[in-house]
Design a binder for these strands. Structure first.
Lengths: 212, 212
DNA sequence: CGGGATGTTGAGGCAAGTCAATCTAAGTGG
DNA sequence: CCACTTAGATTGACTTGCCTCAACATCCCG
């Protein structure tokens, strides 16, 4: 029933508009989900990692997003009809998945607030905070954050421009909050200040994400 | 199992942070869902109407939003544990609900794009478009839209200020796109122009919404 | 016919976008 | 190993759309 799949960085797993009747669980690597609007804007709806779910989950449908491998990627693929059958016979799992979906709705509410009400610096702070959380390593002081995505990806995720993202990051550097080890690696020198800026709402983050 | 409930306009059904172990199906009337951030911003996460679902759907949790009746309101209330049991024994319904949840995720993706990339005029156009859709009456020409919510609600839903919402509406009026019959009733004189502005993506809208 | 809530209009400022010019990093081939 | 190329990132000057603040108009309900 399940098929293993491998992709290289940059490969497209599925494309927006593709008729997709399949869903995936990420085993290894990271995925970027992006959506193009008719007026040519790209929105990064999310970044997924190991354990996360993506693809056509409800009835068969055209994919909302394009899914691209950001790193070497290992996936587990399921045919949706079979998966639906499976869920029919495992109602407990179905309920769990439903909970994951509602968590994602809440996460999107939060993201909407970020997009509509937060300043550029706050958005970037939230983003860095989320990255450091994901890394999981609570390196007491000065955690090192690896930023696997481009400035353009960050901008399209946070509703900013690459220039603004760049400017905010250099301001953070000048303020001594962070230090750079190359443009894709950051050392957080003042986590408290970052959390303060992020306006950290102490809601526990769901351990599993979902993408469409 | 199910209990009927009645509210007057302005009544609070449940409040953000309340421990909520109950979910509701709206029978009659409209509900406004709002979320307050720690920095004092209010975000209207959505407006719900007849047939829509809201409340604590996953595990018991503190409510994310405050739910207020915008009109006289009739609800059907369910205890979550019993509802979960019910779902356990009706996996087909569980799958349907899951589909509703994923529709909501998509809707939130779209809303995020609106909040991050669309101009004030486009946002208001999308909003008016959605209102006219909901009304359902495809009055060939010049549909009449009833706007049950305040400018403040609209602003907090679209990530704008009341002043900007007001300005955009008067601009629409000056351009001959709409006409006012009082501040809460609008006649659309040029639907094509409105759709154009809204950047109408021809995705079929889900018939059922969900709120947390 | 008040008076509070809601909506509109105007003037001015600012955060972030746009446009454009470097700077840097990472290849690539001679 | 080094010039050359190219994509990505940074920085700067300028513009602008929306927010802020403030005044005014209108609606609604006792």
């Amino acid at each position: 029933m399940a098929i293993g799949l491998c992709f290289d960085a940059g490969d497209v797993v599925f494309e927006q508009g593709d008729e997709l009747d399949r869903l995936f669980v990420i085993t290894e690597g990271m995925v970027r989900l992006s959506h193009l609007t008719i007026d040519g804007n790209r929105q990064i709806t999310g970044f997924l990692g190991p354990g996360d779910l993506m693809g056509s989950i409800k009835r068969s449908a055209d994919a909302y997003c394009t899914a691209e491998a950001m790193t070497r990627l290992v996936l587990c693929s399921f045919e949706r009809p079979r998966f639906s059958d499976f869920l029919q016979h495992h109602p407990d799992l179905c309920l769990k998945l439903f909970a994951v979906a509602t968590d994602e709705i809440e996460a999107q509410y939060d993201h909407g607030i970020l997009l509509s009400r937060k300043h550029a610096a706050e958005r970037v702070a939230v983003f860095l905070h989320a990255l450091s959380q994901r890394a999981g390593q609570v390196n007491g002081e000065s955690p090192i954050i690896d930023i696997p995505m481009s400035r353009s990806d960050i901008a399209d995720h946070l509703g900013l421009t690459i220039e603004t993202v760049s400017r905010v990051l250099t301001r953070f550097k000048q303020q001594g909050m962070i230090e750079f080890r190359g443009p894709k690696t950051v050392v957080v020198k003042n986590m408290a200040a970052l959390d303060e800026l992020a306006g950290f709402e102490n809601r526990p983050k769901p351990r599993m994400a979902i993408g469409l």
